[in-house]
Amino acid sequence: MMKHAFATRLILFVITILLVTVILAVLNWIPSLVQKQTMKRFSTIDSAMKAFRMHRLFLPTYIPEDLHFVWPPAEIYAQEVPFSAFIMHFRYKDSREIGLVIQQADANAPYQIAPLIKIKTMTAGSQISIKNRKAVLQSAVCDGDVPCNEVSWNEDGTIITLICKCSAQDIVKIASSTLPSP
């Protein structure tokens, strides 16, 4: 009898909690109706460009074959509000792990969008030139104690950042390929 009463109450409790989660999910969905240009995930680069009428997108035209990254990017995100940003995540062919992140965001953004690949410790940093742009190249150790590199520069008010679990030479080659030839 006691067990039966407990089970009934437990079911009632589960139902009420499910109701709370549904309400939270609905509340989370409402802002996307009010402001459509907030961060969203897209299945293709074209659909992101169309949705946000992006005119300048810095896409890599060269990714070294031996890095085994899959093209097109596994995940594409874009937003216009509160500032414009475009993010691509590249996976390895043989795993679901993200090995390359390319982000572009408004240089006047009120806050930075933290890249998915997290840098644990910086090991070295230097100023380099990428097709006549001043860029910063930083060698680091990323999540999972994997060596990685980050390169970033300001392209006419847009900060472009690449983080790759690859060598400095490879990331510079990928970064250069995002820019048109002089």
């Binding site: 939270l24 999910a25 961060m39 995930r41």
Partner: peptide
């Protein structure tokens, strides 16, 4: 620690307060 990142907010969170707080109707 990744819980505060945008990636978690967008793909995992049930409710992301920033979606509301960034609204500027």
């Amino acid at each position: 620690p990744q819980r505060s990142a945008w990636y978690f907010r967008l793909n995992t969170a049930l409710f992301d307060s920033q979606r509301w707080l960034e609204l500027n109707p």
